[in-house]
Simulated scan of single mutants.
Amino acid sequence: MKDLWKQWLIAEWSHTLLLKTLDIVLVLALTYMMLVLINERRTLWMVRGFIILMLASALSHQWGLELLNFVLEKLVIGCAVAMAVALQSEFRRFLERLGRGEFRQMFQPSSLTLPKSDSTIDEIVEAIKELSKNRIGALLIIETTGPIDERDFSVPGVKLNAEVSKELIQTIFQPKTLLHDGATLVRGSRIIASGIILPLSGRTASRQLGTRHRAAMGITERVENCICVVVSEETGSISLAERGTLNRPLTIAKLKDLLEEMFSPNVDREAVAPGLLSLGRQIRSKALFMVSRLLGLPSTASRNKK
């Protein structure tokens, strides 16, 4: 009888341990997916604050602090709604990938596609300067933290895959060319495509804004990993669209400053989720270090020094 009781306890303990381990693994996987989804450090702080609120709410419930738990629960719900609004494009992309069954992409951090040098920004700025001076309408899409899915465009346009140059940009937007009505996509230091038709923003906009401005607002509302530079055909004014908001009117100097600030290799633009191989190596090295400390063995670093 005692043996049966011990076997039952061992089986129950093993089952509980397995479930807890699976629970931890699933939470870690979900956390990693969130890091891949967010992909920017400054947004990560908001998610970290939300997680802290959730932990505080769970602890207050565990310790029987009813009033504090009530307040924290309402605060967590409000923050969840606010995050759903602030990160709506990320959540939309997550649900789209989930619906398409693209599970592998959920664990792959998007690679940065920033302009390779200041010369690319200079070429873009010089082209915009000439287009603005001659009052030639233009719409440039510049990718920031990863490639844009062509399915986000109404019409993907014509593939070019050419080096960015002010002459080419000016030529594309000349009124008599076939591609001047659409947008031009810039990825890194390459012009990927032109003649792209973009979805228009559903927001109520000023009557001074034309189709190009509404298209710039529409694509940056739908996709957060890009910005748009717009030149008005009527006035020659320059605008910059980011996350559905237009910054206008801009001078050439201000546009250059904004582009250099956005595409400078600062901390805020770094990806927050390492690759799976890199993450595996980090976990392995940390685990070996902890085991060596527990067993009193010399670490790899100390052995190398010797």
Score class of each variant (00 low, 15 high):
Phe103Ala: 15
Ile169Lys: 09
Ala183Asn: 03
Gly101Phe: 02
Lys166Ala: 11
Gly157Leu: 00
Lys133Asn: 03
Gly188Lys: 01
Thr220Glu: 08
Gly137Trp: 08
Leu131Tyr: 08
Ile197Glu: 10
Thr220Pro: 14
Gly146Ala: 04
Glu150Ile: 15
Gly146Cys: 00
Ile141Asn: 08
Leu178Gln: 12
Asp149Thr: 04
Gln108Phe: 12
Leu98Arg: 08
Thr120Arg: 06
Lys133Tyr: 10
Leu98Cys: 11
Leu179Glu: 12
Leu95Thr: 15
Ile128Lys: 01
Arg104Leu: 07
Gly218Asp: 04
Ser110Trp: 01
Lys133Ala: 12
Leu179Cys: 09
Glu126Gln: 13
Thr211Pro: 02
Ile136Arg: 14
Gln208His: 14
Asn161His: 09
Ser110Gly: 00
Arg222Ala: 05
Ser201Ala: 07
Phe153Gln: 05
Leu112Phe: 02
Leu160Tyr: 09
Val125His: 06
Ala183Ser: 12
Gln105Tyr: 03
Ile172Gln: 05
Thr171Ser: 13
Gly137Lys: 14
Arg203Gln: 15
Glu163Val: 15
Ser165Gly: 10
Arg222Phe: 03
Ile128Pro: 01
Val125Ala: 00
Ser110Gln: 08
Phe107Glu: 04
Ala162Thr: 10
Leu140Thr: 11
Ile172His: 12
Thr144Ala: 05
Asn134Tyr: 14
Leu209Cys: 04
Ser154Gly: 00
Ile172Met: 05
Gln208Ser: 15
Gly188Phe: 08
Ala138Leu: 09
Thr113Cys: 10
Val155Arg: 08
Ala215Ser: 15
Val125Cys: 07
Asp118Met: 05
Ile219Pro: 05
Glu126Ser: 12
Ala215Tyr: 06
Ser194Cys: 07
Glu143Asn: 08
Arg207Tyr: 08
Ser165Met: 03
Arg203Glu: 15
Ser189Gln: 07
Ser194Gln: 04
Thr204Lys: 11
Leu112Pro: 00
Thr171Gly: 11
Leu114Gly: 02
Pro175Gln: 04
Ala216Ile: 09
Ile191Glu: 02
Met217Val: 14
Ser201Leu: 04
Gly137Arg: 14
Ser110Arg: 06
Lys116His: 07
Gln105His: 07
Lys159His: 13
Arg135Thr: 11
Arg222Ser: 06
Leu185Ser: 11
Gly202Cys: 02
Met106Ala: 07
Leu139Tyr: 06
Thr113Pro: 00
Phe107His: 00
Leu114Gln: 05
Gly195Asn: 03
Lys129Gln: 13
Gln170Ser: 14
Ala138Thr: 00
Glu224Phe: 01
Met106Pro: 05
Ala216His: 10
Leu198Cys: 04
Arg207Glu: 14
Pro199Trp: 03
Leu185Lys: 13
Ile148Lys: 02
Arg203Asn: 15
Leu198Pro: 05
Gly157Cys: 05
Leu140Glu: 06
Leu198Lys: 01
Phe153His: 05
Ile191Ala: 04
Ser119Met: 03
Ser117Arg: 02
Gln105Glu: 12
Thr184Ser: 13
Glu221Gly: 11
Arg203Tyr: 06
Arg97Cys: 07
Lys133Gly: 11
Arg97Gln: 13
Arg207Met: 14
Lys116Asn: 09
Glu224Met: 04
Glu130Pro: 00
Lys166Phe: 01
Ile191Ser: 04
Ser189Thr: 10
Glu163Thr: 12
Ala162Val: 09
